[in-house]
Design a protein around this nucleic acid. Structure first.
Lengths: 224, 224
DNA sequence: TTGTTTCTAACGGTTTTCAGTGATAAATAA
DNA sequence: TTATTTATCACTGAAAACCGTTAGAAACAA
């Protein structure tokens, strides 16, 4: 007896075609999954979903033009239907919390095994969350160790760079571009002192040691 | 009539398992290709090839512990037999020239289509070089325009840390971990002055402005 | 053997970052 | 309306980074 089953429609977005082809090949052996399209940048994802639908979107964070966060944010602001699994090179907890907040259901690090992707697709298609084991552990760890730390580690909802003010983001981005305080003050038309205040607050808010920590944070969160 | 054919033995090295699984899936439909192993870092590649052989090695540049360049260099110094196809996120001309010089036969950017990998494997297995079309063009362009560039300068955006000395790498990694000069000197058991010299040389070699630039370079090249 | 690279170290001087504290006006949220 | 957040600016002192230059010893390559 053959069971009639609606296939799960999957769309893939990643700027590495070779990775896309790989995922397609992995999924091709799954009878209940159908890859309905892919694109190599965020812009094309947005375009595609204007006139098409899919059940699950596998979305890379690091993409040219429009990055994954921006795509997700856009969907989030427009009541999207498809379930989103975020794909990233970094399994950074702050990033994970951020994407969950703006509507992602699953998170996969690229270092995870390919088989996880099948499991992830099936789970999120049912509306369940999916995280790879090591990431689950990481998330738990931060929830445990940081519930007692001072106010500013996690802002209730767990996102972090959303807790930065717009101005702080400006400064952070320029720091990550290797500008020094004087140069930043010139570019933002504010005083050196003000820039220093912002920098100080960033270091404290993000719980890093110095500008190097800020730069790394910015990079990992695709702010540059 | 069935032709008896020796399969091409392929070994894959990349720190993203999901990409490895993808490549394996892509290659699984090729009758004359057999994947004989893989690893997630350079160290394991070197170990594996001490006691095993393969015809073709697909080698990612950005890997933790021992990077692709170092692996290739090691093979190069030891008269290796296997043909190497270098895989990289960046299709930087300087990087390509570098890997060719130390014995790679093929070069694939990750943004290339998956089918290219099959072609690449077949070509290099016959001792021929393989480059994806867009890369061929790039190489030609620079050979024409750059016949008179200066000796050796390093990339702005990454991919050339093979020109850094081991000690410089040590220092770079610690900087990217937010350690300051004093802490680094303690950890490496050298004087503060020496660390400062290394830092200075790094900034100059990598053509960045400050420690932030160094950290970004380290991160982009997977050194942390 | 000779030249080159690497690692080590030092020094003086300048610029930048960092920590702590405090403060005001404007915008925003409760 | 009141409280909070955000953006702005200032001052001090200490620590760290940065610049230019020099130089010896060891390891390595031609």
């Amino acid at each position: 007896m053959r069971k009639i089953m609606k296939k799960i429609k999957v769309y893939i977005a990643d700027d590495h075609q070779i990775l896309i082809d790989g995922i397609i090949a992995v999924l091709s052996s799954e009878e209940n999954i159908e890859v309905v399209g892919f694109s190599l940048n965020g812009e094309d994802v947005l375009k595609w979903f204007k006139t098409n639908t899919a059940d699950v979107l596998i979305l890379d964070i690091n993409m040219p033009k429009v990055d994954g966060i921006a795509v997700l944010q856009n969907f989030f602001n427009n009541n999207f239907q498809q379930k989103v699994i975020v794909l990233s090179s970094y399994d950074d907890v702050k990033l994970i919390k951020e994407v969950l907040k703006i509507g992602a259901l699953g998170f996969l690090a690229k270092k995870c095994a390919g088989e996880n992707i099948v499991e992830a697709i099936n789970k999120v298609n049912n509306g369940e969350q999916y995280f790879e084991k090591s990431i689950q552990q990481k998330l738990l760890d931060t929830f445990n160790t940081h519930k007692s730390t001072s106010k500013e580690f996690v802002s209730q909802d767990g996102s972090f760079f959303s807790s930065l003010t717009p101005r702080e983001l400006d400064v952070l981005q320029l720091i990550a571009k290797q500008y020094n305080t004087k140069e930043i003050s010139d570019q933002l038309h504010i005083s050196v002192n003000t820039v220093e205040t912002h920098r100080k607050n960033l270091i404290s808010k993000l719980n890093v040691k110095n500008v190097v920590g800020l730069a790394i944070y910015a990079l990992k969160n695709n702010l540059v």
